[in-house]
Amino acid sequence: MIVTWVIAEDILREALRRRWFLVLGIAITLCLMVLLGTLRFDAVENTLATSRHALDSAGGDVHAVGQIFNPLFRAAAYLIFYGGILFGIISCAEFAPTLLSPGRIEHLLSLPVKRWQLIMGTFIGVWTIASCASLYAAGGLTLILGIKTGVWTLRPIIAGLLSTVAWAAVYATMLIAATWVRSAALSAGIGGIVFIGGIIASNRESILGLFAPGLGKVVFSFLSMLFPRLSTLGAACARIASSQPVNAGALASTIGGFACFTAVAVALAIVSLERQDF
């Protein structure tokens, strides 16, 4: 298992050397700085003070005053979820094909590294990158608002971490593609298909209603069943971030579905790599 972590660590090191991730870090920092500089904290503070006073007099929940930020948290959650996945598809597509490239894979496999460790290490490394980026964005936002207004909430961070569950599913399919054909473009293409397919699958029931009974409906029903329900989880992240009620059972089922999809995809990537000669 140590080797798996070493490979994950190497992926992180490689990410640090790439401009993509430097740009991501700068972009998130810039967004946070812009928010810090442009949000009208004085107006917010006045509103909060008034709300707090009113709630204190009425004996209400002080935390509820934080709801003034809900639209901002919701927007941030959507941005982290969809923006993060899209950015990941483009920026992380190269990792696995590079590791599997001719001349590199032969060397790696000659070392005391098992093939499954290579896949798991890559997967964990890329997932860690996504988690760090999500944590930085969501945590930064929470920190800025917390320090400036005194409203502290973990909900955006939880939503940010949940978005990495969706990313894990998308990246697992990209890994399968990379083991078939060592191409970053194909890997990104498959990631894109899962991304779009996941959005469509989330609206499966409503779209199915538009189909006339027949082969088309059966095909759509079958194909949409294969994709993880990306938008469903995205919407749940937004609801969590904006302190809206979430059906815990449905969320657990969605996360479970994502976990199963990811596990199967990673297993397929391992099987595919195990069967290959380089």
């Binding site: 490689e14 050397r17 790439r18 590079t98 490239s101 001719p102 001349g103 590199r104 032969e106 060397h107 000659s110 070392l111 005391p112 590294v113």
Partner: peptide
């Protein structure tokens, strides 16, 4: 494999 040192025909090194 820990006891083996291998130099492949075309070794691709991480450029960065």
């Amino acid at each position: 494999r820990a006891r083996i040192g291998y130099l492949p025909e075309r070794l691709a090194l991480p450029p960065a």
